[in-house]
Write a protein that binds this DNA or RNA. Sequence first.
DNA 1: TGGCCGATATGCT
DNA 2: GCATATCGGCCAA
Length: 181
Amino acid sequence: MPRPLTADFFARDTLVVARDLVGATILHGGTGGVIVETEAYKGDAASHFVTRRHKAAMMGTTYGRLYVYSIYGMHHCVNVTSDRSGPGAVLLRAIEPTHGVDEMLRRRGVTDPRNAASGPGKLFVALGLDPSMTGRAACEVLTFLPRKGSVRVDTSPRIGITKDAHLPWRFTVRGSPFVSR
DNA sequence: TGGCCGATATGCT
DNA sequence: GCATATCGGCCAA
């Protein structure tokens, strides 16, 4: 059993953290899987640090903490704040279920593992997270295991934004059927 | 205090 | 591929 990641993993530059998180395993209780999709947000125009600067102020003052937000009145998504020297957070967008798969399918009300956590709102539900976790130390609430072998990571523009939409700050496992969209 | 809009998911055509 | 549910946060007034 490898040593879990600690908060200092998230202290580095947000683009590095977001890329390195791809291929790592995230666990909450007995459920979780391999992170196959992340996005980086810094001080850019699409970042909640700008568009939700009061609610997301922790992006500028913390790293390694959970930042949970709600969107479209019906979904929640989770980030881990990053970068000890500037505003940053990594949005966890998709995992390949490997632990407690049946439990995650049950939480989601689906039967296809490819539809269990292939999107930030789905991931939030599948892992059994709660909005009250926002602000907590990520590595106390969750377990992050470093990736084992090598992973081919693709880079592409972030999904679902209109501002700074061209920035290639989305990271995915090449060829994974568990990424969003 | 009102109106606009979004780091989404789903179901229907 | 497209419509739409649904509501908190933000800012202009």
